[in-house]
């Protein structure tokens, strides 16, 4: 069923040929262009690559999702498991940030300013953030077990850089995916050259923010 959703282009078949040629190259970039089934470029699609033979370097960089104008910002984030995220409140009103998602359940009871402790997201999955007193506030955090991830810009393109050559599983997730939160997968082989990948997702328009 998933195979149906991912369409391979001619570029992909060329890629398979190139994989054998770039065995020895050290790193490469991959550019992914994500569209919906109607061909429209999708922003905020999370693109990441799994299956690296090398151990995943733990970046564990600090990450911030601020609340401003009664909105989470950014509304869609992608972080590597183990990342600590702080939720600074930039509004004058207080917020009560919570998540009932299995990947990370937490709540930051009514607070202003920056909470004392950041929240550790140590499990891969999707976390839906809400504010208990502002129903319209909604944000998604996609936690991945890989350091290689990116998010499509408004032009629907994401680029993963410094990816070692090799064979990977390319996954694309979008919060408005038609099917139960399962990311689209595609095997890719990374060569020295930047290899653009085009991904098409089945999007439920109703879910788009």
């Amino acid at each position: 069923m998933i195979a149906k959703l991912i369409k391979f282009t001619t570029l992909q078949s060329l890629g398979l040929v190139a994989l054998t040629l770039s065995q020895l190259s050290l790193a490469a970039d991959v550019t992914v262009e994500v569209r919906d089934s109607k061909g429209k470029l999708l922003s905020d699609a999370v693109v990441y690559v799994e299956g690296s033979k090398t151990a995943n370097p733990a970046t564990n960089k600090a990450f911030e999702i601020e609340q401003k104008g009664r909105q989470f910002n950014p509304q869609v984030s992608v972080v590597q498991a183990g990342t600590q995220i702080t939720f600074p409140n930039k509004d004058k009103v207080r917020h009560h940030v919570y998540s009932f998602s299995p990947a990370k359940k937490f709540e930051l009871k009514l607070y202003s300013g920056v909470p004392a402790n950041p929240v550790l997201f140590d499990k891969a999955g999707t976390v839906v953030l809400g504010c208990n007193i502002h129903d319209t506030m909604l944000a998604y955090i996609h936690i991945v077990d890989t350091p290689y991830f990116a998010k499509t810009s408004a032009s629907g393109v994401a680029a993963i850089t410094d990816l070692p050559e090799g064979s990977y599983e390319l996954k694309v997730w979008h919060y408005a995916l038609q099917t139960d939160n399962k990311p689209a997968q595609q095997a890719i082989t990374i060569k020295s050259t930047n290899q653009p990948v085009a991904i098409q997702l089945d999007i439920n328009d109703m879910k788009l923010m």
Binding site: F100, V128, G130, C131, D135, T136, L138, K207
Partner: peptide, 13 residues
């Protein structure tokens, strides 16, 4: 007479 209401957290759960 019936009414259905979605429960959101904050998406429909």
């Amino acid at each position: 007479q019936l009414v259905a209401v979605p429960i959101k957290a904050p998406i429909v759960i």
